[in-house]
């Protein structure tokens, strides 16, 4: 091999590694674009993980190299109605090859509903700045006709060690009651549909998990989660628009925010926007309406006047 070709090869390797490094660095925010992700599919320091609602959708075609999380078994304790415990999460992260020095890109169907919920759980266990959402999720990836694969690629297991859960990111019933009793200055942001918020309906049609009462937590404000999303491609709206959207409801980052919905999953989408995109202090209340609305003796607001009882 000539000296010239050696130099040429060395330069090429250097340029490639610089390009990779700068690409990874360029994505310092909480979102990555589909374009960036396609360019970085083979980067060993990028780990792509799908968290979709619909079972079987990952298996029938996913972003090449992506791993899969089944949210209803992997990220929860099914019997105690809790997020996955530290040991379970650690085992999952290791299996997925996730660690603090790896850029983790989460994506899924339904405008990243459950991908955002995944990011919330990841954050609780100490994986925050290196965890990103694919802006637009599956929807945009498919719209742009980018490649999908069906063959599984085993991930090289990591040696991730789980930290103490970050309790500041998770609101419990007592935190919510404290705002109702005005012993806390946190604001409650309810992201359900206006009809659920007003108490016209208990839950959208077809959902099994219900509360006995309809309405909302006193003092909470309503911004439906989907208003933060461009419906055309599922991407999250620009920062200025988001700030304006939430400021109109009195959420401007000056006070801590608690996001809530029916079971705490849609609200994690808004939590992600407030906490990660806008940098507000936000916690997600995963007990949500199915917990609060069912508690004996707690006050609720029910503008629609649908009160629990017989006919």
């Amino acid at each position: 091999m000539s000296v010239l070709s050696l130099i040429r090869r060395g330069a090429a390797v250097l340029a490639a590694s610089l390009a990779l490094g700068s690409a990874a660095l360029a994505q310092s925010g909480p979102l990555v674009s589909t374009e960036w992700l396609e360019k970085n599919l083979s980067d060993p320091k990028v780990r792509i993980v799908e968290v979709s609602v619909e079972p079987g959708i990952y298996e029938r075609g996913h972003i090449p190299g992506a791993q899969n999380i089944a949210w209803h078994t992997d990220l929860v304790e099914t019997v105690s109605r809790d997020i996955a415990g530290p040991e379970k999460f650690q085992a999952l992260a290791r299996r997925l090859g996730v660690d603090k020095d790896v850029t983790v890109v989460l994506y899924g169907d339904n405008n990243n509903w459950f991908a955002a919920w995944g990011a919330w759980v990841f954050d609780i266990y100490g994986l925050r700045d290196n965890v990103k959402l694919l802006d637009g999720g599956r929807k945009k990836w498919e719209l742009e006709k980018r490649p999908v694969a069906t063959n599984p690629v085993p991930a090289k297991a990591s040696s991730f060690t789980v930290g103490e859960p970050n309790k500041a990111l998770r609101a419990r019933l007592t935190d919510v009651v404290a705002t109702v009793e005005k012993t806390s200055d946190a604001r409650i942001l309810d992201i359900r549909s206006p009809d659920e918020f007003s108490g016209k309906i208990i839950a959208p049609a077809g959902f099994q998990e219900l509360a006995l009462r309809a309405g909302h937590i006193p003092g909470s404000v309503n911004v439906a989660w989907a208003r933060a999303v461009n419906q055309a491609d599922g991407t999250i709206k620009p920062v200025e628009e988001l700030k304006k959207l939430y400021a109109e409801a009195g959420i401007d980052g000056s006070k801590p925010v608690i996001t809530t919905c029916r079971i705490g999953e849609r609200s994690s989408h808004t939590w992600f926007i407030l906490s990660r995109v806008l940098g507000y202090q936000a916690a997600n209340y995963d007990g949500s309406w199915t917990e609060y609305g069912n508690v004996v003796g707690l006050p609720i607001n029910n503008p629609a006047g649908t009160v629990w009882g017989g006919k």
């Binding site: 079972p55 079987g56 990952y58 298996e59 089944a70 078994t73 069906t150 063959n151 599984p152």
Partner: peptide, 13 residues
């Protein structure tokens, strides 16, 4: 391809 190890708690989607 979809569920390389059938011995766990999961069923194929």
């Amino acid at each position: 391809a979809w569920l390389p190890d059938p011995s766990g708690v999961r069923l194929p989607p």
